[in-house]
């Protein structure tokens, strides 16, 4: 599905955050949303998911306004993994992933819902912890479980808010690799992410947000020294090696 972010504006109780954003996102893109703290990355993801309703503009899915969809249909279209989830009541990993079937569940859970849940648990290699309480997992395991829950929604578009924060090096790679595979399976994937080097390694498109506006967007070519320096107000050095690009921060401007 083609996603159009169409001139959206959003503010929290009159506190303006997103200012007339427009962007086109193609099916199967793996999009990184980068930008300084408070630039509106999380807010943008919430607007796309429909958790927040933009005050102006629209989000179109193949020409259809997302806010005209009913709640279950929206939940079948967008999966969302929040930036942080605090303490939640004890629930097994299996039940947590099964929760992703919520928009499909009528009066009772069908065999098919359980099959999909099992399959996703299997795909994400979390079957060994399937009967454990989610609260008793490590940060990386939890992240996997929440991604699994979002995948159980069988979404067309997967939105993740800083999925690699709190993860060690290996788990960061694992999660991003997983998301890359997801996007290659034609599920459009958007992540808010701070690590530019990781984003550059895995993502195919980039949206740079600054002060609620799109500072720049496009493919890897926009990852230039000038763009990064003025986006974050820092000095960086840029290296190219093995077809990859690396940024090394040098200090404040």
């Amino acid at each position: 599905m083609h996603l159009s972010i169409n001139n959206i504006t959003f503010g929290y109780n009159g506190w303006p955050v997103l200012d007339h954003l427009t962007e086109e996102i193609h099916k199967g893109d793996f999009v990184a949303i980068v930008g300084p703290n408070g630039s509106g990355k999380s807010t943008l993801l919430r607007c796309i998911d429909g958790i927040l309703k933009p005050q102006a503009g629209s989000i179109l899915l193949d020409q259809e306004d997302v806010h005209h969809l009913d709640r279950p249909s929206r939940a079948k279209t967008f999966g969302y993994v929040p930036q942080e989830s605090g303490h939640t009541p004890p629930a097994t990993v299996f039940d947590t992933v099964l929760m992703g079937r919520k928009p499909y569940i009528g009066w009772r859970v069908r065999e098919r819902d359980k099959q999909i849940t099992s399959r996703i648990i299997h795909q994400l290699h979390i079957e060994d912890i399937a009967m454990k309480d989610v609260n008793k997992l490590s940060g990386g395991q939890k992240q996997r479980v929440f991604i699994a829950r979002a995948l159980a929604q069988q979404p067309e578009i997967l939105l993740l808010d800083e999925p690699t924060a709190n993860l060690d090096l290996r788990h960061q790679l694992e999660v991003l690799q997983l998301l890359q595979e997801v996007s290659q399976n034609n599920i459009t994937t958007m992540v808010a992410i701070h690590d530019l080097n990781l984003a550059a390694q895995y993502c195919s498109r980039f949206i740079m947000l600054k002060d609620g506006k799109i500072f720049s967007s496009g493919n890897k070519e926009i990852l230039t020294k000038e763009n990064i320096e003025s986006l974050y107000n820092v000095k960086v050095k840029i290296f190219h090696a093995e077809d990859r690009v690396f940024f090394v921060p040098q200090g404040k401007k």
Binding site: R46, D49, G50, I51, R71, P72, R74, A75, K76, F78, G79, Y80, P82, S85, G86, T88, P89, A91, D95, T96, M99, G100, K102, P103, I105, R149, Q153
Partner: peptide, 20 residues
């Protein structure tokens, strides 16, 4: 019951799962 279970996961997650 599924709405309440979803609320357990946090209001934001519940909303993204289609709960009013």
């Amino acid at each position: 019951r599924w709405n309440y279970n979803a609320l357990d996961a946090g209001d934001e997650v519940a909303r993204s799962l289609g709960v009013h």
